[in-house]
Design a protein around this nucleic acid. Structure first.
Lengths: 217, 217
DNA sequence: TAGATTGTTAATCGATTAACAATC
DNA sequence: TAGATTGTTAATCGATTAACAATC
């Protein structure tokens, strides 16, 4: 951990695979599997052993020659790489249907993130709680950010206000936005890192593949 | 449309970009922009014009030399490619928090998919409706599939039952599964196409990038 | 030790970018 | 026509795969 001399940035493809490794390692631990290898990992994820080793070696040496990988050690290594031990705090902005569903059901703490506040415009919601987390007036959000460590914002407001809110959050020092809005947020909200979640993209990929298959038979 | 002699499969990277093109084309239409070019599209999406032209040329010729692309024609072309005009029907299995949120808020019809039924085990829910769609006993799902055209299943049940349900659906002819379960479904449920949605993967990518940035300053 | 599997370099493959003739 | 922009081929770049010496 803490290899700060990151020479060349790790490719996005590699980053996308890390959570999948983590999921499988957790499953192995649950099944009391202590030891694994690049071959086994590759097999369960549909990759090649070479690729698994290349991926991991972007971040250092996690294995032992002739032995393989200790599941627990590798899991912890990947958790560190992904920032799960940084104590990130998040706020949610907008608690309509999707926001409410996330606040209620998505286990942020499983991924090292703590949801410390929810903001909305709806007066009826303000002062109530979802899953133990208080809902505040969105008008107080700037003060809240000033007074608390807030690393991420989970954006769940309607599309039309998204750009403006992203800009406001960025101005006030929020560096990461998890965007469930249907507005594509690129990084003009400057410095901020944005992860756009588009359910429709996912559905359309499925639709494409089904169409392609139907046509080929 | 309908080029059935698909020679080499189009790469996944290309498919992932198609919904993004579509989103921008829709925005252009909303703004009464009738005509565009690979340069403009590339610019708004952070790609290169070359890449846009290469992507589109996987599927035929959509533009006019010296002119560019007619927004409306291109949009319709991409909709066709993605299968949005195939009249796909979907059922939802499991209507807990995430399922309910999707049924209520995600506009399936915007993407050419019709949600025709919801299935759950909870007796209290059976017979009620969400967003006008009836909730049926999951025990009747095989009959329902036999009696209706069902192209896709939106899987929103708890993780533990996911593999079994995927197998059941596949056995009964469902070829596409949109999987919101936390279980990774690969394609052993044979022939079925699976699109796994993992919120945590998305959050962890954000966490990674934030961590990386924090370390580099 | 012999067998196994890593870390890492080299080879291959595929995707992106550049270039440009075709043509609207 | 001159200017613009496509469709498409060629060049470059990067990611995946293969190979193997190091070593547990």
């Amino acid at each position: 951990m803490g290899k700060s001399m990151s020479i060349k940035p790790v490719s996005d493809n590699v980053i996308r695979r890390l959570p999948k490794y983590l999921r499988k390692l957790n499953e192995m631990l649950d099944a009391n599997v202590r030891r694994t290898s690049s071959f086994v990992i590759a097999d369960v994820l549909g990759l090649t052993a070479s690729q698994v080793r290349q991926d991991l070696n972007c971040f250092g040496e996690f294995g032992h020659q002739g032995y393989g990988y200790d599941v627990s050690t590798l899991k912890e290594g990947i958790e560190d790489i992904l920032g799960m031990n940084r104590g990130f705090n998040a706020i949610m902005v907008g608690v309509g249907n999707i926001g409410h569903s996330l606040a209620d059901n998505f286990c942020f703490s499983d991924w090292g993130v703590k949801l410390i506040g929810i903001f909305d415009v709806d007066k009826k919601l303000i002062g109530t709680k979802v899953n133990g987390i208080e809902i505040y007036d969105v008008g107080t959000i700037v003060d809240f950010i000033a007074e608390n460590r807030v690393d991420m914002a989970v954006l769940c407001i309607p599309k039309r206000g998204a750009k403006e809110m992203a800009a406001l959050l960025a101005e006030n020092g929020i560096e990461a936005i998890w965007n469930f809005t249907n507005e594509d947020l690129f990084e003009p909200y400057n410095q901020s890192i944005v992860e756009n979640v588009h359910f429709s993209d996912s559905l359309l990929r499925l639709s494409y593949r089904l169409t392609e298959r139907n046509d080929n038979k």
